[in-house]
Measured scan of single mutants.
Amino acid sequence: TTVKLGDIKVTFDNPEKAKKYAQKLAKIYQLTVHVHGDTIHVK
C-alpha cells in the first residue's frame, strides 16, 4: 500500500499502518485521505 502526498511516496507492507500514517499526515497538514485501491492519497 502506497501513501502519496505531493511528490512524497511511502510504501507499506501493512495496509493498516499505511492508513494510520496517512491519517497522521492528513492531521498535520490539515488535508483529507482518499483511498484508491492500493494507493492512499493525502490531499
Rank of each mutant, 00 (worst) to 15 (best):
K43Q: 12
P15E: 08
V42K: 01
H36D: 14
N14Q: 05
P15Y: 14
E16A: 10
H34S: 11
L31P: 00
K24A: 10
Y29E: 00
Q23R: 10
F12W: 03
L25T: 01
E16S: 08
H34C: 15
Y21G: 00
L31T: 04
G6F: 11
D38Q: 09
T11K: 11
A18S: 01
Y21R: 01
Q30G: 15
G6S: 04
H34I: 14
T2Y: 08
K20R: 12
P15G: 06
H41N: 06
G37R: 05
V3Q: 02
G37D: 05
A26Q: 04
N14P: 02
H36K: 10
D7V: 14
K20W: 12
T32K: 08
K9T: 13
H36E: 14
K9F: 13
T32S: 10
T1D: 03
I8E: 03
L5C: 15
L5Y: 12
K43V: 14
A22T: 01
K9W: 14
V35S: 05
K27R: 13
V10T: 05
K19L: 15
D7T: 14
I28S: 04
I40D: 01
T2E: 04
H36P: 00
G6N: 06
Y29A: 02
T32M: 08
D38S: 12
F12M: 03
K24Y: 15
A22Y: 04
K27A: 11
H41T: 12
T32Q: 09
T32V: 12
T32C: 15
T32R: 06
A22N: 00
T39F: 09
V42A: 02
V10W: 15
N14H: 07
H41G: 02
A22K: 02
F12R: 01
T1E: 03
V10I: 14
G37T: 03
T32P: 02
D13G: 08
Q30T: 06
E16P: 01
H41M: 09
L31D: 00
G6L: 08
K27Q: 10
K43Y: 14
I28K: 14
K17G: 05
A18D: 00
K43S: 12
V3Y: 02
T11D: 04
T2M: 08
Y29Q: 01
L25I: 09
K4C: 15
V3H: 03
V10N: 02
H34M: 11
K20M: 11
A26S: 05
I28T: 07
V35C: 12
Q30L: 07
Q30F: 09
D38T: 10
I40T: 02
G6T: 04
Q30P: 02
D38E: 07
